[in-house]
């Protein structure tokens, strides 16, 4: 079953990449669709980021002030905005988490 889903999703993904190169469709997608697809990365990735930071993996509750992941993520956001480098952002966030987990 997992192979079936993986291959089906893989074929769909290939189709999204190939579709406009296929010469079967000569028009660009309609502007409203281009606008909407432009928000896919922000929406999807934020939907993954926020629970990964706020939901405590131990008991599945929302954690705010006693949550080292929240503060580590805040530092990582600053690092991302300042350096725009993925490796620095990951490094700052992970090290901040280690320090905070040790300190809190």
């Amino acid at each position: 079953m997992i192979w079936f889903i993986m291959i089906a999703a893989g074929l769909f993904t290939f189709a999204t990449r190939f579709i406009m190169l296929s010469n079967g469709i000569s028009n660009r997608p309609p502007p409203w669709l281009v606008d909407a697809l432009g928000f896919v990365p922000i929406a999807v990735l934020t939907a993954i980021i926020v629970p990964a930071i706020l939901i405590d993996p131990a008991d599945q509750t929302i954690a705010l002030w006693d949550n080292p992941r929240l503060f580590a993520a805040a530092l990582a956001i600053i690092a991302a905005l300042v350096t725009r480098q993925m490796i620095t952002t990951i490094g700052v966030g992970i090290v901040a988490l280690w320090v905070l987990q040790w300190a809190m």
Partner: peptide, 10 residues
Amino acid sequence: PLTFIAIVAP
């Protein structure tokens, strides 16, 4: 989440 922060924040 850190990887995705690096993509989304900027």
